[in-house]
């Protein structure tokens, strides 16, 4: 299945989480309030470090979000 991450088309497997996709691409999920890059930490929905934007909504926890065909993911948006 295909999704878009920051405008780029990416081939992903059904069942993957958006957090895993983003990590595999070597991207940080978000910028912290002082500008540090941050990525997923807990993998279970409690740390909120994996927050990013999906289909224009956010910031949402990507580790709790399975990939969906055609979804538009935007990382690094403060």
């Amino acid at each position: 299945m295909k999704i878009r991450v920051n405008g780029q088309e990416v081939e992903v497997q059904a069942g993957m989480s958006v957090a895993a996709v983003v990590m595999n691409l070597g991207l940080a999920a978000r910028r912290s309030v002082t500008g540090e890059p941050r990525g997923p930490v807990c993998g279970m929905g409690v740390c909120f470090e994996c927050r990013l934007w999906v289909d224009g909504e956010g910031p949402l926890r990507s580790c709790q979000m399975p990939v969906r065909e055609g979804m538009e993911v935007v990382t690094d948006a403060v």
Binding site: Q13, S17, A20, M23, N24, G39, C42, G43, C47
Partner: peptide, 17 residues
């Protein structure tokens, strides 16, 4: 970003990392 929880990394691997 390369510092992850221990169980956290395991969970992320299950998610496809």
């Amino acid at each position: 970003p390369h510092v992850v929880g221990a169980g956290g990394l395991q969970a992320l691997v299950k998610q496809g990392l």
